[in-house]
């Protein structure tokens, strides 16, 4: 796969960074470009991206008792794209000129993904929609390991540990596994606070002034949905924020931005793969339960009253 042309951003370490460095050159445990892409003291917003088959394209193969995603289009999860948009907005508010043409000012948006090598072209969309760097963990992950959130979180936390992140954002659920486990696990492994269900994040004080400059204290005002409540938080990073579907709508990339993204370097890195603790024993389509098909007689109000009594009896409401 070609990484396109262009030099590595200033400060990139040779291992695993840039198009000229093969992935194999970055040994497990070696550091990638910790300072790549931004000047010293830059705040690095890392966004965790998962590439998964589009759910609508996935079918169940009864003969193989397996989920068949052979012909499914692979894409970055919708909530991860929303998380990237939150990061892009934060960078823009801090005056970093975020977006596809972002510079290397005080706030940098780095996308990090553990995905098969073939997904790199999918991941490049992140470079067109707000990320200034793309870090791609190319260590092969078999199906069992990929299905275990502890394995994935451990690898991501190891990679983040080398990247000097200031804030980590991710989607609160993936399209395929719908676990919502990786965010809190990464936070725990890094020893950082975690907030899920995030719908908004902004600099406390607003705009670039709120970013506190490259070296000053900066805090974020975060709103998160928790059950029936909307809760406000003041966050002093480092922290991990998981963004839900009510975050800002993801930015669509223009063809020009996509072309530029395909010329930008991708930093490849490798991590150690932990032994999976979960074992998937079988897969099945969701069963269709037998239904009661019980008629409720009467006109609207009477029928509704009778229905409600039956639902209470069954403890449905």
């Amino acid at each position: 796969m070609s990484d396109g042309g262009g030099a590595s951003p200033a400060g990139a370490s040779p291992a695993g960074a840039g198009p000229a460095t093969p992935a194999a050159a970055a040994p497990a445990g070696a550091g990638p470009a910790t300072a790549a892409g931004a000047g010293p003291g830059a705040r690095r917003l890392f966004v965790l991206l998962k590439v998964a088959p589009r759910p609508a394209d996935v079918y169940f193969s009864a003969s193989r008792a397996a989920v068949d995603a052979t012909n499914a289009e692979r894409e970055i999860g919708a909530r991860d794209r929303t998380a990237l948009e939150v990061a892009r907005i934060l960078a823009a508010e801090a005056g970093a000129g975020a977006g596809a043409d972002a510079g290397t000012a005080g706030v940098e948006v780095a996308a990090l993904s553990w995905a098969p090598e073939g997904d790199e072209k999918v991941l490049r969309a992140a470079l067109a929609t707000g990320a200034t760097r793309l870090l791609h963990i190319t260590t092969p992950l078999d199906e069992a390991a990929a299905a275990d959130p502890l394995v994935v979180a451990s690898g991501l936390a190891a990679a983040l540990g080398r990247g000097e992140p200031w804030l980590v954002l991710c989607g609160d659920e993936s399209a395929d596994e719908s676990r919502g486990a990786v965010g809190p696990m990464v936070a725990a492994l890094l020893g950082w606070p975690f907030i899920g269900g995030v719908v908004r994040a902004k600099w406390a004080g607003g705009g670039a002034g709120g970013a506190g400059g490259a070296s000053g204290e900066a805090t974020l005002e975060v709103e998160a949905e928790e059950g029936p409540n909307l809760v406000s938080y003041v966050v002093r990073p480092p922290a991990v924020l998981a963004v839900n579907r009510h975050g800002p709508a993801p930015k669509a990339a223009s063809p020009l931005q996509l072309m530029k993204a395909f010329r930008q370097p991708v930093e490849r890195l490798e991590v150690e793969v932990a032994a999976p603790a979960l074992k998937v024993r079988s897969l099945a389509t969701t069963e269709v339960r037998r239904r009661l098909n019980e008629p409720i007689p009467g006109a609207a109000e009477d029928a509704l009253a009778m229905l409600w009594a039956k639902l209470r009896e069954r403890r449905v409401i």
Partner: peptide
């Protein structure tokens, strides 16, 4: 323990969605 990361979250106002 999280003690050395320096990160913190402070829960504030709670309102209905």
């Amino acid at each position: 323990t999280g003690a050395e990361s320096g990160g913190s979250v402070t829960r504030g106002k709670v309102g209905p969605l």
